[in-house]
Structure formats: C-alpha cells, structure tokens
Computed example of a mutant assay.
Amino acid sequence: MDSTTRAVVDTVDVDRSDHDYRDWLKEAVRKVQADAQRSADTHLLSFPLPERWGIDLYLKDESTHPTGSLKHRLARSLFLYGLCNGWIRPGKPVIEASSGSTAVSEAYFAKLIGVPFIAVMPRTTSREKCRLIEFHGGQCHFVDDPRKMYEESLALAGESGGHYMDQFTYAERATDWRGNNNIAESIYQQLRLERYPEPAWVVATAGTGGTSATIARYVHYMQYDTRVCVADPENSCFFDGWVHHDAQACSESGSRIEGIGRPRMEPSFVPGAIDRMMKVPDAASVAAVRALERVIGRKAGGSTGTGLWSALKIVAEMVAQGRTGSVVTLLCDPGDRYLDKYYSDAWLEEQGLDIEPHTKAIDIFLATGHWPDQRPDQRPD
C-alpha cells in the first residue's frame, strides 16, 4: 500500500481520568498540605546536665503536634503518598495496622479529607489511644495476636475496597529524607546556635523504622559526623536482626512499649543506615520516663523512656572518655495516654517489672557522672 492509498489509523487513546475524582484529589492534597502550613515546628527541650561535663542533652518534643505524637509527621507523609499514588479514593476506607499513635494521627487526616478510617490494633492498646482514634472519627478493630495485624488489615481492605496504608512498608519511602523540614533537618536547624550544633549522637526508637531511616539518611546526605543509635525494647526483633544481619529475625510476643518494637523485621527498618543499637529492658524504659518527669516535669510515653535510657548511657560513655558534645533523643508522645500503664504501680506489678534498680542507676549517674559499675575506660552496653 503506497502513500496515496494507505488507510488512516486512528491514535489509540485510553483516558481514565475522572474530573470529579481529580477535583476531590486536589482538594484532599491541599487540605493535608495546609495542615503542615498551620503547624509550627516542635520544640527542642534541654535535659539539664552538670555544666562541668561539657555535654548537652536534648529531647525533640514531638508531643506538641496536633495529634500529640511523632506519628503526625508520618501520617501526613503517608496520606500524601497514598493520595498522589491514586491509592486513597473518595468514600473508601483507609485501614492501618497500628499499636496506637499512628492510628490516632491517621484518623485525624482521614477525617480531614472525609474518608472512613479503621485501625487494626492489639487488644492491649491503651484505652486513651482508642478513645482518641474514635474522637477523630476512626474505628478500632482489635486482634489478640499482634502478628496477625498485617493480614487482618489486608483482608479488611480487600473486603471494603479500601486502601491498606501499611506504614511498616511505606514509612521510609513516604518521607522526604533529603530535607523539606523533616525531623532531621528540623533538629539541625534548631541546634544552629547551640554550643555543639552538630550532635555527636542522635538516639531514635523504631516501630516502623521510618524515623531512624530518615535521620540516618539525612546525616549521610549532609555529610555530618553524627552517629545514629536505635534503642530497642524487649519482645522486639530489630536488635537481633541488626546484630546478626538476619532479615528473617522474629519475636514470639508483642512489645509492652507501645509504638516501638516489632515481632518481625519491617521493610521500613533500614539496618545499614544506622551505627549502633541498644537492647533496653522494659523496666529501664519505665524508670527513665519517670525520671524525665522528675527532672523536667513532663510525662511522656514509654518509647521516650527507651530512647532516653540509651541517650543517658551514651552520655555516660562520653563522660567516661572525657568527650564533649551534644546528644539528641525524642519525646515521642505524651504520658497521659499511658496513665494506666507506665505510670501505674499496679500495672508494673502485674507485668512483673521492677524499676527500682534502673531508677537507682539513673539517680547515681545524674549525681556522679558515672554509670554504676562503669570504669572510666569502659563503654556502657
């Protein structure tokens, strides 16, 4: 067939755009971004240490977000990620596997854009977190075995036609770790006028692993000398998986420290990015969070205690080695969510936790600068 007789072939064109949906999407993204514009940055609190030590300890207070926790940043990023990928649709529920704080924050953003929200969570989740999820319009769906949260969430999404947010997979990729006012960039900006503006250590805890990945990647990207330590509670596999380079590491029971610790190595946990891990007894986490209240008058959740315990041991190491500098850890959420747990002596007795030896260790350290049984040249565990 020559050019004079060749048939005209129409362009193949498949247009799946829906103008109503695109209008809804633009408005939903605008609302989520507007939330960030309305929110001021969180404070960097100073934990008082003796001046002669030459070491400054700070807590990044994430409890001042609109939903009261570090997870507000993550939930905002996950919603933007899900919306921009076309996964979150009008009228369809968002489902999340969460031990509490992420679900509170995601319930807030779901209500903001007008979609239903279902939190799949362990039956042991604190009553206050459940109340907050429901306050923001979400539903609580309980499981007896924390290891079943993933498959139950996926099944609910399939049955409802909704979207399983899956924070444990997408936390590390939904956050812009190069900057854009993420938590790491915020910490360094707030330290600019301090005597040690580049911290020697940043201590984080891991639930999804997204926060430690964001901080560690930002440190490497900006070519800082800061080291990143992740503190892991009992009944969590992250420490063993990191030490033994075992991506299949697992734990048979759920963590008592809500929000951190996982029974499996989560996809968002990036072991190669961090420098150090510490395994922290749950009793030590509770002792540390109660010590925080005594020292600065603030109640915080158990995950804050896990990080603070490790930060104090790192400070003890620096004192023993005659080093100066700054250390930063996180105040993840407020303690009023856990009055029936970490601030309840009855709960401690029920769990068989004795915090007295750990309380004594902290008190001795803060008074003398030496961790009990620590020689001047000995690194704390």
Rank of each mutant, 00 (worst) to 15 (best):
M1L: 13
D2C: 12
T5L: 15
V8W: 04
V9I: 15
D10L: 13
T11A: 07
D13V: 14
D13A: 12
R16A: 12
D20K: 08
R22V: 04
D23W: 11
W24S: 08
L25C: 08
Q33D: 10
D35F: 01
H43R: 15
L45H: 01
F47H: 10
E51N: 05
E51W: 00
L57G: 01
Y58V: 07
Y58W: 10
E62L: 02
L70H: 13
H72A: 02
L74D: 14
L74R: 09
R76N: 05
F79T: 08
G82N: 07
L83C: 07
C84F: 00
W87T: 04
P93C: 08
E96K: 11
S98L: 08
S105Y: 13
L112E: 13
V115M: 14
F117K: 14
P122D: 09
T124G: 11
E128C: 14
R131E: 14
I133N: 13
F135N: 08
F142C: 08
V143D: 09
D144F: 07
P146V: 11
K148A: 15
E152T: 15
G162V: 08
H163T: 03
H163L: 00
F168R: 02
A174K: 02
R178K: 09
G179S: 11
G179C: 11
N182V: 02
N182W: 07
I187L: 08
Q189L: 14
L191V: 07
R192V: 14
W201C: 06
G207H: 06
I215K: 04
V230S: 03
P233K: 12
E234C: 06
N235W: 06
D240R: 15
Q248T: 12
C250Y: 11
E252Q: 10
E252F: 01
S253T: 15
S255E: 09
R256D: 03
P263G: 02
P267T: 01
S268A: 15
F269L: 10
V270R: 11
A273Y: 04
M277K: 07
M278S: 05
K279H: 04
V280L: 06
V280R: 02
P281H: 04
A291P: 00
E293V: 00
R298A: 06
K299Y: 02
T304S: 10
L308C: 09
L312C: 06
V315C: 11
M318H: 05
V319Y: 05
S326L: 05
L331I: 11
C332N: 09
R337K: 11
K341I: 07
Y343E: 08
L348K: 14
E356W: 11
E356S: 13
H358T: 07
K360S: 15
I362L: 13
I362F: 13
D363M: 07
T368P: 07
T368I: 05
W371T: 10
P372D: 05
R375I: 01
D377C: 07
